[in-house]
C-alpha cells in the first residue's frame, strides 16, 4: 500500500489486514477458543449417542457448525484451505459408504438367513451380544461423517459469493507479497 506522502510502500500489520477484510479481533479470539471445544463436544455427542441424548446426526451438525463458526470469524478463504473441497466430497460419500457397507457386509457374511442391516452378523472379534452395539457405533460414525461434510458443503455453497471471494483472495495475496 502506498504511503500517504507517496514515498514508498509499507507493510500492513496483521491488525490492519484484519480491519481491511472487515474482521474483528474479539470475534477471532473468542472463536479460536470456542472451536476446539465445540469440536470436542461434537465428538463426544457422536460417541455418547448410545448412552445419552445425541447421536451421529446431532454430532455431525455440531461439528459442521464449528466450521460454520470458523467461516464467520475468519472468512471463507481460510476455511477453504483448512477443509479442501476434495476432502469434503470424499467424506460425504464415505459416511454413507460406511453405513450401506455395514449392511452389505451383514448380507454377504451370512447369506440366506440374516437380513440387511442386521448387526449381529458382523464378523467382529467380540462377544455375540456386543456386535449389535458396535455395529450401531459404526453406523453412527458414518452418519456423523456424512452430515458434517454435507452441512459444511451446503453452507459454503449457499454463502459463497464469487466476486467477494476473488477480492478476498487478491487482498490476501497482496498481504503475502508485502511480507
Amino acid at each position: 500500500m502506498t504511503k500517504a506522502d507517496g514515498t514508498g510502500t509499507y507493510q500492513l500489520t496483521a491488525e490492519e489486514r484484519r480491519v481491511a477484510a472487515g474482521r474483528d479481533l474479539i470475534i477471532e479470539v473468542i472463536a479460536s477458543l470456542m472451536i476446539p471445544l465445540i469440536q470436542l463436544f461434537a465428538l463426544y455427542v457422536i460417541i455418547h449417542g448410545a448412552l445419552g441424548a445425541g447421536g451421529g446426526f446431532q454430532g455431525g451438525v455440531i461439528l459442521a457448525s464449528s466450521f460454520i463458526l470458523y467461516v464467520i470469524a475468519f472468512g471463507i478463504t481460510g476455511a477453504r484451505k483448512r477443509l479442501p473441497e476434495s476432502w469434503n466430497t470424499g467424506l460425504q460419500s464415505l459416511g454413507v459408504y460406511i453405513y450401506a457397507g455395514v449392511g452389505l457386509v451383514c448380507i454377504l457374511v451370512s447369506l440366506g438367513f440374516v437380513q440387511y442391516l442386521n448387526y449381529w452378523a458382523l464378523p467382529l472379534p467380540v462377544a455375540y451380544e456386543m456386535r449389535r452395539a458396535m455395529g450401531m457405533d459404526f453406523v453412527e460414525i458414518g452418519i456423523g461423517i456424512t452430515v458434517m461434510a454435507t452441512m459444511t458443503s451446503l453452507f459454503f455453497d449457499l454463502a459463497w459469493k464469487e466476486k467477494e471471494e476473488r477480492k478476498e483472495v487478491k487482498e490476501s495475496n497482496e498481504g503475502g507479497e508485502k511480507k
Binding site: 476434495s86 466430497t89 470424499g90 460425504q92 454413507v96 449392511g103 452389505l104 448380507i107 447369506l111 440387511y116
Partner: peptide
C-alpha cells in the same frame, strides 16, 4: 448365489452405492 429374497433390498443399496460412486469417480 444370493437368495432371490435379498434382491429387492440389494436393488436399493446397489443404486445408492452407485450414486455415491458416481460422485467420487466423477472427481
Amino acid at each position: 448365489m444370493i437368495g432371490i429374497e435379498h434382491l429387492p433390498v440389494l436393488l436399493i443399496v446397489l443404486s445408492l452405492l452407485a450414486a455415491f460412486t458416481i460422485f467420487v469417480a466423477g472427481w
